[in-house]
Amino acid sequence: MGEVGPSPRDLAIDVRGLEKRFGGVTAVNGVDLQVPKGMIYGFLGPNGSGKTTTLRMLCGLLKPDGGSGTRLRYDIHTEAREIKRRIGYMTQKFSFYEDLTVEENLNFVARVYNIPDRARTVGRIMEDLDLACRRNQKAGQLSGGWKQRVALAACLSHDPALLLLDEPTAGVDPEARRSFWNIIHRLASQGITVLVTTHYMDEVERCHRITYLAGGRVVTSGTPREVSDRSGLVAFAVSGAGLDDLRQTLGREKAIRGVSALGAQIVVTGRDREAMERALAHVNAGHLSWEQIPPSFEDVFVELIHQATESQGKGAWT
């Protein structure tokens, strides 16, 4: 892609060609991932695209079938044990003890890591994450957002340099999501590298850089802006009467690659701005108006997947 990457020693994660097969299924298929230190790195993709599997390989829970690289300069094949003390991994499904209280869970983790001043460390983390008032509640009785905080808190007692968060905001209400992201930003400002998976498109912009994964392959990587620009996607918000009928008509236009609803408007996307405007003018009977808007990341990713499959298709022909 022609970018000048950061030098390897500034990379918290540097893996290439990562591969994992389950029986006949290739869950992760040649994934490259370079995550600079101190960054919030978004790892996106639809369900089943291989995000969790990649994270598990990174933290040593699964053995990669192919590829090479390091995280925190520990080799991904041989140093699964060594990485454990330096990494914090928050699983997709809450995986602490629901029959223990918040504090008991945190104490358990701190004991395992043999944290010297356990009571103070656990107390400080609970303060930091506003968990102190719930210290004596059983983890199983907390709501989704609070559970996620407990899980995050449990990743922090051993001062990890790298956090792997697997869909930490899934199923969490919008306000809790926002405060969770604030915490992530605070941690990053303290120098912790955060790799976070999500499939909420509105969370893309909260990341410094992202990688979008589909079918176990990297579709694109870069800053959110770069990714958006790279797609070359142009979007128009169209308003007016009779939009429902129009959707079908527009969908048949060659210049228009996607039509989707956005409230009372519809959004049409394509790559050739002039051709799109001609197409809109063509179907316009005088009651439509449109304006160009930045394409949503959802549209960008759909477009990028199309482009990837198209170029693969071409590759197969030549």
Binding site: L61, Y89, S95, E98
Partner: peptide, 13 residues
């Protein structure tokens, strides 16, 4: 079954 094994495995225990 409860998924807590993943937590155990990722910790230095």
């Amino acid at each position: 079954e409860r998924g807590t094994l993943e937590t155990l495995l990722v910790m230095p225990i």
